[in-house]
Design a protein around this nucleic acid. Structure first.
Length: 235
DNA sequence: GCATTAATTGGTC
DNA sequence: GACCAATTAATGC
C-alpha cells in the first residue's frame, strides 16, 4: 500500500472518511499524507512543534504525557478511525503530548494549514470536529474525578473496562497487547500494583489469561465494583 | 544459547 | 501505596 485511501477506507467512525465523498472536501483530503509507523515508533514528540493532526488508518497507538520524575501518564489509546494529536491543533504551537505506535500502524496526517482550510470550507467537517471536542472534554472531566477518588484496585478495574470497550473481542479477550507498565501508566499507578491487582482478579475468577492475552470473565461484577462509587463508565 | 527486557514477588518506608 | 532489590519468565538476536 502506498497511500491510505479515504474512499475505500472502512473506518466509518473517522470524521474525514465520513465526509470524504463530498466534493467540497475532496481537494483537502487529496493533500493528506500517509505515514507508516513501526511498532514502538514515536510519531508525536512532547514539546516539539505540532505537525498537524493524525488519524489512525490501521493500527494501535498510545498517547501520553510525561509527568513529574519522568513518570509516564498515558492519556488514551487509539485505534482504527480515531484522531490523535487533536489537543495540539489550533492554538498550540508545541505538542502537549507524545504518541507512540503499539504495533505497526498506518496514519493519515493533515497539516494544520490543510485542516484549517478544510474547516473553513466544509461545514460538515467543522461540525463533526466540534462534536468530537465536546465529547472529549466531557470524558476528561470524568477522568479527574476518577483519579482523585478511586482506589488502586478500582483504577485498574476501570482501566480494564476501558480497554475492553476499545479493544474487546466477542470471545472476551482484549485485541491488544499491553505491558503491565502501560496499563499502570493509564490507570495512574505503578507496574507492581497492576500486577498485584491482576493476580487477585484472576484468583477471584473475574479475569483470565490465555498466553499473553487478557480477558474479562465477569463483566457485570467488575462494573458493579466501580459503579457503586458512582463513577461513569464511559470515560 | 546468550543477552536483554518484562513480569513477579518480597520487603521497606 | 510508592519505591527498590532480587528472582524468574519471556523474548530478541
Amino acid at each position: 500500500m502506498q497511500k491510505a485511501d479515504c474512499l475505500t477506507c472502512t473506518n466509518d467512525s473517522c470524521l474525514i472518511k465520513k465526509n470524504a465523498n463530498a466534493t467540497a472536501a475532496m481537494p483537502f483530503v487529496e493533500q493528506k499524507h500517509t505515514i507508516f509507523c513501526k511498532k514502538g515508533q514515536q510519531f508525536i514528540i512532547e514539546g516539539a512543534p505540532v505537525h498537524g493532526l493524525y488519524f489512525v488508518y490501521k493500527g494501535k497507538v498510545k498517547v501520553s504525557k510525561t509527568g513529574l520524575h519522568g513518570r509516564e501518564q498515558i492519556v488514551r489509546f487509539g485505534h482504527d478511525g480515531e484522531i490523535i494529536g487533536h489537543r495540539g491543533f489550533g492554538t498550540g504551537k508545541f505538542s502537549p503530548i507524545s504518541a507512540v505506535a503499539l504495533e505497526d500502524t498506518v496514519l493519515c496526517n493533515f497539516t494544520n494549514d490543510v485542516l484549517n482550510d478544510m474547516m473553513h470550507h466544509v461545514p460538515d467537517v467543522t461540525y463533526d470536529m466540534m462534536m468530537f471536542y465536546a465529547e472529549e472534554l466531557n470524558k476528561s472531566e470524568t477522568k479527574v474525578k476518577k483519579f482523585a477518588q478511586m482506589t488502586v484496585r478500582e483504577k485498574v478495574i476501570d482501566a480494564f473496562l476501558y480497554i475492553r470497550r476499545k479493544f474487546g473481542q466477542p470471545g472476551d479477550f482484549f485485541d491488544i497487547q499491553l505491558s503491565r507498565k502501560d496499563i499502570a501508566g493509564f490507570a495512574g499507578t505503578t507496574e507492581e500494583q497492576v500486577i498485584r491487582v491482576i493476580s487477585s482478579l484472576k484468583k477471584e475468577n473475574l479475569l483470565r489469561a490465555q498466553g499473553k492475552k487478557l480477558g474479562i470473565v465477569d463483566l457485570d461484577l467488575l462494573k458493579k465494583e466501580i459503579s457503586e462509587h458512582n463513577f461513569f463508565l464511559d470515560s
